[in-house]
Each structure stands twice: as structure tokens, then as C-alpha cells.
């Protein structure tokens, strides 16, 4: 169990701190863009781009943080919606959406694994990964259309593992009564990780990280993000996990580095998919960002990685009621 003081959504000081800090950063960013616009040093295109991004964040942050503050069911529900939106973009980009039956099965798998999270039934939650993979592997056999079998099955299983099984870990965390500060930390840390990589890359410059995969990323940006994110996650993590076996500098730093590395890996994973397809953005839903996946790619691998790290030392919801829907 993650330690948590009694009380409502804002009982933990870290929860309050993250929400206040996020709002403050958003306000400051708005002010900075305003000053930049007034100074006349930014061209109209850059101004428009900055305002679009800022506006998207203003809409997005309440949708991300709100459900976490509202409670367990809201969190699992929001993660489910996020999974489905991510899958939709992936399916349309890869062409998997044309496989009607298989696509419906991926959706069923995503709904099932999130239901297991909502039910707080860990056995079913983990059983669903191989079970769904098997279901996806056999689903199109009765169509008697072996041509393209490997491609469509592989695309479907990758989709389920990334957007279903992977992201569902974030929702499952809400089964621990003390989930709020941790989930909020992950949501904000992966965003900060992106910003840190971008800023350090611009300030320091230098060698490209993987130019064929993502031409704008630099080695200095990647390392800078690791330093910034690790520092932040380790310090806030020390407050969240005080008194648990995880509250040890070595493990806290490992956790911070894991958030940063897994976050950047998720980003590069999506870049690889986009490069292979020859497209720039996965969608157009978020002005200034692209698609939902372009924004949330960093969470895909962070959620399961941190889940198991924290699970190993602390555990999730070990004293909370299990099988709250299917139990008797």
C-alpha cells in the first residue's frame, strides 16, 4: 500500500502540490507567450503555434488530472477512453481498421482488461494478456483468408499490448487508496520529460540521437531529460513513498530514471511506427500536438514499468477489497 493520510482527494500534500504546480506552470506559460507576442520577437506562425499548444494543454490537463482527483472509477474510465482513442488512431494509421472483426476483438480486449482493473481482479488482469493474444491469433482463422494473416495478427497483438495491457496498468494503480499522488506524478513527469528533452536539446545541441527514427532528437536532450526527470521523480517519490522499502535513494533514483527512459522509449516507439508508415502525426485531435497518441506515447511503457517497480517494493491495493464487481 502506498502511504496515504485520511481525507478526501486533496488529503496528500503531494496531490495538492502537483495540481497547484501544474496550474501555475500553465499560467506562467500563458504569460510568457503573451509577453513574447507583445515583444514582437516571435513571428505570427510561431505565436499561433504556441497559442494552439497552450490552448490544447488548457483543455487537456483538466481531462487528465480531473478523473484522477474524482476517484478510482473515474480514473479507470478515463484510461479506458484514452486506450480506445489511442487504438483508433493506430488502427487508422496502420490500416488495421479495415479488418473489421479483428479490430472489434482488440476493442473487446481493451474493454476486458480495463474491466479487470475496475473489478480489482489481478488474476484476470494478467490472464487477459495471453488470453487476448490467443484470441487475436485465432479470430480471423474462420474467415479462411490466410493472405495477410501474420501482418494483421501482429498488428492487433501489438495494439492490444501497448494500448490495452500497457495503459491499463495506469488505471489499475487506482485500486490503491493512495494512488493519487503517484498517478499525478507519472502524468506530469512524462510531460515534463518531453519538455526537458526538447529544451535541453535546443540549449545544448550536439549529436543526433537516432536521426533516421526521429530527426529532431539529440543525445544531449535525452540525457538532459534523464537528469531533470530523475531529479523530480526521485524527490517527489521520496515524499510519496516515505516509510516504505522504496524510500531509499538508490531505488528512488532508479524509479526516476525508469520514468525518463521508458517515457523516451515510448516516444521513439511511436516515432518508429510513424516513420515506417511515412506519416508525420497520428491524428489532428489536439491542435499543436497532433493526435492523442502523439501526446500520450510516453505513457505507454511508463505505466507498466512503474507499476511493477512499485508493485515489487510496495504493492498496489493489497488491503483494498478485491473483485468488487464479480465477487460475492
Amino acid at each position: 500500500m502506498i502511504p496515504h493520510p485520511p481525507g478526501g482527494a486533496f488529503a496528500h500534500p503531494v496531490t495538492t502540490g502537483i495540481v497547484v504546480a501544474t496550474a501555475a506552470v500553465l499560467a506562467l506559460a500563458g504569460l510568457a507567450i503573451l509577453l513574447l507576442s507583445r515583444s514582437g520577437r516571435a513571428g505570427p506562425d510561431l505565436r499561433r503555434e504556441l497559442w494552439l499548444r497552450w490552448g490544447s494543454w488548457c483543455a487537456l490537463l483538466p481531462l487528465m488530472l480531473g478523473p484522477v482527483l474524482l476517484g478510482r472509477e473515474w480514473t479507470v474510465g478515463a484510461v479506458t477512453v484514452l486506450s480506445l482513442l489511442c487504438y483508433r488512431e493506430y488502427a487508422r494509421a496502420t490500416g488495421l481498421f479495415r479488418e473489421r472483426l479483428l479490430s472489434a476483438m482488440v476493442v473487446v480486449g481493451i474493454l476486458a482488461v480495463n474491466f479487470a482493473a475496475l473489478d480489482h481482479w489481478y488474476g484476470f488482469f494478467v490472464a487477459l494478456w495471453p488470453l487476448t493474444a490467443c484470441l487475436l491469433a485465432v479470430a480471423t482463422i474462420p474467415l479462411d483468408r490466410p493472405s495477410g494473416y501474420i501482418q494483421r495478427t501482429a498488428l492487433a497483438i501489438l495494439a492490444f499490448l501497448l494500448f490495452g495491457a500497457g495503459l491499463a496498468h495506469l488505471g489499475y494503480m487506482a485500486n490503491d487508496p493512495g494512488y493519487r499522488p503517484l498517478v499525478l506524478l507519472l502524468l506530469t513527469a512524462v510531460a515534463l520529460n518531453d519538455v526537458a528533452a526538447f529544451t535541453c536539446g535546443k540549449l545544448i545541441g550536439g549529436a543526433k540521437l537516432l536521426p533516421a527514427t526521429s530527426p529532431n532528437k539529440t543525445v544531449s536532450g535525452a540525457l538532459g531529460a534523464v537528469v531533470v526527470t530523475t531529479t523530480l521523480v526521485a524527490s517527489v517519490g521520496a515524499l510519496i513513498f516515505r516509510g516504505t522499502p522504496l524510500a531509499n535513494p538508490v531505488w528512488l533514483i532508479a524509479m526516476g530514471a525508469l520514468v525518463s527512459v521508458a517515457g523516451q522509449m515510448g516516444d521513439l516507439l511511436l516515432s518508429s511506427i510513424k516513420r515506417d508508415l511515412g506519416i508525420k502525426d497520428m491524428g489532428t485531435v489536439l491542435p499543436g500536438h497532433g493526435g492523442v497518441l502523439d501526446r500520450f506515447n510516453s505513457l505507454l511503457l511508463v505505466a507498466p514499468a512503474i507499476f511493477h517497480l512499485v508493485g515489487y517494493f510496495v504493492g498496489f491495493g493489497l488491503l483494498a477489497p478485491t473483485r468488487v464487481i464479480t465477487g460475492h
Binding site: R92, T94, F97, R98, S103, Q151
Partner: peptide, 23 residues
């Protein structure tokens, strides 16, 4: 791998697009 013909269009543009493909 064939992305949807209407990929990258804004929602309203997509509805009016001749390349609209059903999901």
C-alpha cells in the same frame, strides 16, 4: 501498410472527404 485515405484530415474535413473510410 495502407493508412486510412482520410488520415490527417480535421474531423469536419474528414466527414466531407471523398476518401472517408469507415471504422
Amino acid at each position: 501498410l495502407r493508412p486510412a485515405r482520410d488520415l490527417g484530415l480535421r474531423p469536419m474535413e474528414r466527414l466531407r472527404s471523398l476518401g472517408r473510410e469507415a471504422g
